[in-house]
Design a protein around this nucleic acid. Structure first.
Lengths: 199, 199, 199, 199
DNA sequence: AATGAATGAGTGTTCATTCAT
DNA sequence: AATGAATGAACACTCATTCAT
């Protein structure tokens, strides 16, 4: 694998940024090479094909870029939380807060997940993470017994839906935080043990 | 609004059926007029344009058709339930059970909602229904206080995600029923009042 | 398999004709849909895709059309000949005479054979025919012993080369006939038995 | 004409070799600069344009290279033969034998001749050689009277066709030699005088 | 009511070539 | 001498829609 020159990295980044913008604004379905090229200020779609192996390659790069942004924003807050329940709360709340910081990235990611979701390792990775978290939490007594895969699906999708709706018309930061807390509370209650025996 | 002749209604229904099949099998993105025409046994796409004002019109008709099927299946079960909580449970469980009865319709609807969702009155209608149910339930003391719109979003999306995953590889009827109960339980707990004082 | 309307047959024929002309004039490599569309007086390449399943389909139709023309011209003369040697002569001579009657068809066919040859059933069909003719001729004592496949290859290719060269700059009819006789004579001699014992 | 530096000659040779490999493996039509660059281990097609005036220039260089290889292989055998007939035999046989020694070169050359043939001086040079050989042979009484150009065309094309077929799936050396002798015999008979009066 | 031919913009991708560095 | 970024035309093909019949 060869190293990338500065210029190439720059162009790739520029194209990825443009692609994310287009997806966020016009939707996945309208994110054609020509729209992306126009958004990036490129004179032809050939440039995109020159820098990316194909549409899948570009889209994958977009997902990767967005996830990096999200991780940088969310991970510190999740890691700062102690216990399975607090971490679940931190995940949901920081995910919702993302809308205030990077609304375009959030909108684009959700559209990408919806449309190229099932193939993507990254997307299934998130589900696996959720599931794993629920499973270990159950073992620790932090969560009641339930089908962890089903709950993971419902959580991830619910968060995405709420976030997508907000990203379409971002409310103020406080409102965002409030709704994030509400959503987190819902999932905490949905998964809480019948009798309090927290870890 | 003029009345429709029998043949026109027949043709429309035939095309809608074909479109739903195509969306269920090949996905929304591949549901072009030509594929639909082929599925319907029509020799040209002109027929479709003749009977529908445009692609949106056809897609709307598909959503309507599927919702009619869903309503016929779910409504009796929901109406049979007494109380806001029981009705929520009935909604979720009967929705999941749909997968066993009409997997193609379910798969198509979810794809339609994902892709043409925000514009569709029908889709937003479901959300409104959820929201209204939560609101009146809160007034009746069946649900705790929460933002009803956010909860509606999270519920609808969570159900869709679970259903979509199941529709892709439908499990047996019993497993379906069990997972439906689990999912319903989650939302019941998420919305339950802190102190039991059911209506 | 559905019947074709008159108009469709007409368009198909028109496109095939245009394609043959383009191949004859500009060569197989330059025979793009846009050139063919222009030659046919069509406003877009979409028309071609509308009438043909793909480029292969169009090219196959071209080969079929040309072979029909050739068969109509050559078959009577070959059938009129008696004996394996006379038929070989008739084949070669009538093939060469084709150049005078349908130079474009000949040029196009040779280019098609060169470029899409090995896949084509029609092309291999000709080789099989040659081989079979040599084999039965050998059994009848009309030809000496030799590897019939190799001879078939050499004959077919030799004829094509001579014909292609002539088609590029067609000589007069008499010159054509003379050269056809010469070429036929060469293959007759190449295949003749050592001792005269004609069937 | 300026002298070439060592590195430039080296690069040219490297590219020519890669081009021949690509043509032999993927065919003339797929032999794009990018494929050739990849085969040569170059990072960009710019290198090729830098060292060659254009695609024609590169292709011409390929033809030249292959012909040099062929000449080195065939010329000694042809020169060792005495008399026009023996030399014709030696030409055909050694050409067929090439398949066993340099199958890639043979395959590439034939593809090049087919596609860039008529423009190439090298290709026409071979025809001229054949024609000249026939003409002087006729004067010497080694060959009968026939149109030497037509015979040259038929011979060259026939040999190419046989060789191309063999190169696609090279048989063993003995089989090769046998078929080479058969083919040579065919042309010797096709050109032999009616009465034996060899030089 | 119905058809199938036609349209023309649009898709992603590849091409040989140019050019500043 | 060498590079890799850039170009823009070309490629086959699909799309939803229109329209005369």
């Amino acid at each position: 694998m060869r190293a990338r020159t500065f210029t190439e990295s720059g162009r790739r980044a520029q194209i990825v940024t443009a692609a994310i913008e287009v997806i966020a604004e016009d939707g996945y379905a309208r994110a054609s090479f020509s729209r992306i090229a126009k958004q990036a200020g490129l004179s032809s779609t050939g440039m995109i094909s020159y820098h990316f192996a194909g549409k899948d390659d570009l889209l994958t790069a977009c997902v990767g870029e967005i996830e990096q942004v999200m991780r940088a924003f969310m991970e510190p807050r999740i890691d700062a939380a102690v216990g399975h329940v607090a971490q679940l709360r931190a995940y949901v709340e920081s995910n919702v807060d993302m809308v205030g910081e990077h609304p375009a990235a959030v909108r684009a990611l959700i559209d990408l997940v919806k449309n190229a979701g099932s193939q993507s390792a990254a997307v299934n990775g998130r589900l696996d993470l959720f599931e794993e978290h629920f499973r270990t939490g159950q073992a620790a007594g932090a969560f009641r017994r339930f089908d962890s895969r089903t709950m993971a699906l419902a959580c991830a999708a619910g968060i995405d839906a709420v976030v997508a709706t907000m990203a379409a018309a971002p409310p103020g930061a406080e409102e965002l935080t409030r709704l994030g807390r509400e959503l987190a509370e819902a999932y905490v209650r949905a998964t809480a043990p019948d009798v309090e025996g927290e870890e």
